[in-house]
Nucleic acid binder design. Structure first.
Lengths: 321, 321
DNA sequence: GATAGTTACGGTAGTCGTAACTATC
DNA sequence: GATAGTTACGACTACCGTAACTATC
């Protein structure tokens, strides 16, 4: 058994059980992957993948278990590599953040540019996706952090640090009648066509919950994954926008007006998530601290160590944005 | 980087930073270990061990971290091997129990012989040592289980399952005056020379605590790691024995009489401990269930998975022995 | 001078890519 | 017939053990 074989297994499973694809993403040839897989299966005395004739189609029961441990090995190996880099090339490296559009566009820029100034030799990478996609990127080790809102408490392998809470506002063109309604109620909002986030996304479920509880069926005419897209369609007059407070900027969005609706919806919490059991470079801790000043290096390091208990973080006293 | 190199690092650290010794315990040659270590250090770009000239004397800061992750890798690799065995040689394997003399001699025989009958092709191995030794054997992966009393809550890497509670009795030759004293008090016991367990051991601290609280200084004339040794010296008239209830057998110990002293000392809890993040063979779960029927396979498996929270087990309703 | 570790060297074995072959859809 | 996977083969590389050398205690 060797690390390469475990990586091959991992990659085959993450490429739809297609050995040729896996080989490509491993920058090697298909027969090589095939042979190494066979060697590993022979050594273990049991097959890892289910085969229909020659085609690989899924994991055996043993394979599922092997895959889980193989993933851990790869994670640990990458941690060791990172330790090497930490002590040999202190100021160089990569920081890979997986996040949603809203965070990338409205919450992160300040921290990211500060970080880039402080660590000019660290390459930054921002990946976008929906909450489950970005979480899985971190679980698989393809990204260092995930920054997203809710729905991410489900990943046992992620350590989630709540950072701030936020709520929503209604946006509309300056002359829109909804802006005259005081105070805004769910009923009023439901009178108009609504444009808001896609269901898979950032706090959308909170919106649904509020309307459901009130027994109101809102008229959602358009959903998007992206605050800018929502705002654009609101400008075109397609309806009123319902979006995160931070996504509205009085100066930039001069064609729109916003009205706070914090009283109508639950607050959502945005968290930063890291893979448990992973070694984090010092600059990664610094990034966390820049984004969420209440999380100090040592506190997180302790929680990340394998075998440490799942901490429950206070969500009450988080800053609002 | 490869698994072998990580194993070498691990073994060097566990052999007092002596490369020659490590090579021996790895069944290979010293130059081989030396070379591979150098290769790994070169690849990581940082040294793992502190060197005085050519002598290796300790771990660098980076090395400490590397070692921790290397240990995880080796654990995961052995888990994968075990999965292979589980699915290819279901009924064959090894079960390695690290425990104290008292457990091995008085608590385990019934379970062990039952187990041997049910799994005739599983090789059994019982290691003895003091609580910290045997815990570390499990942490290092040299044993599958540790069965011991207290002082083992400190190992974050071990999942401890409390199994039963027990207390102590005083033993003495049949004509000894202490047997006439009713009821027995700490003061009375302290009037006689006492023979009991070594300090490193099984519930010895509970004994100290009781005397300390009462402000009494007991006259402990002899300590041993072994109930049989204690009983032997009691038979010789050197003093009264203070030992675990289960270590006294009315039929076999006909030269001695026992008096219960549960009212004088706190109960001690004996637990079975397994390394977190390790894959356990089915027969291992069966062993646990035979020794502690309230622990079912699925419950433990869930707790063992990496990243799962540290469970707190009830100690209140445990059986007494 | 005994113990511990590194460097040098050669035979062996494992690895990887190309090519040919086979099976599935 | 196109896609997916295995087997075969040869060049190359890595590995391991012996031996010689060097440093520490």
């Amino acid at each position: 058994m060797n690390i390469k074989q475990l990586r091959y297994v991992f990659e085959i499973a993450n490429n739809g059980f297609n050995i040729s694809l896996a080989a490509e993403s491993l920058f090697t040839t298909q027969p090589g992957v095939s042979t190494q897989l066979k060697l590993l299966e022979d050594e273990l005395g049991t097959s890892i993948f289910i085969r229909h004739g020659k085609r690989v189609t899924g994991l055996t029961e043993a394979g599922e278990r092997v895959l889980a441990y193989a993933g851990e090995v790869l994670l640990n190996v990458s941690s060791i590599r990172n330790i090497g880099l930490e002590y040999s090339k202190e100021d160089r490296g990569t920081l890979s953040i997986a996040t949603t559009h809203t965070q990338a566009r409205y919450a992160l820029p300040k921290t990211v540019s500060e970080f880039a100034k402080r660590f000019p030799r660290v390459r930054l990478r921002i990946h976008q996706g929906n909450p489950s996609q970005i979480c899985e990127m971190v679980v698989r080790g393809e990204a260092d952090f995930v920054i997203a809102t809710e729905s991410i408490a489900d990943y046992e392998q992620l350590l989630m640090l709540p950072v701030y809470r936020w709520n929503r506002c209604v946006v509309a063109p300056p002359d829109h009648p909804i802006l005259a309604e005081q105070p805004l109620t769910l009923e009023t909002i439901a009178d108009y066509p609504i444009i808001t986030y896609d269901f898979a996304f950032a706090g959308r479920s909170v919106i649904n919950k509020a309307f459901n509880l009130a027994g109101i069926k809102p008229n959602i005419v358009l959903t998007a994954i992206d605050s800018d897209v929502i705002k654009h369609y609101v400008e075109l007059g397609m309806g009123v926008g319902l979006l995160a407070h931070m996504a509205f900027d009085e100066h930039k969005d001069q064609n729109l007006r916003a009205a706070d609706v914090s009283h109508l919806f639950d607050y959502s919490t945005t968290s930063i998530g890291v893979r448990r059991g992973r070694y984090l470079r010092r600059y990664m801790y610094d990034f966390i601290e820049m984004f969420a000043p209440n999380y100090k290096r040592e506190a997180i390091a302790g929680k990340l160590r394998p075998g440490s208990s799942i901490p429950v973080f206070e969500e009450e006293n988080l800053p609002l944005r």
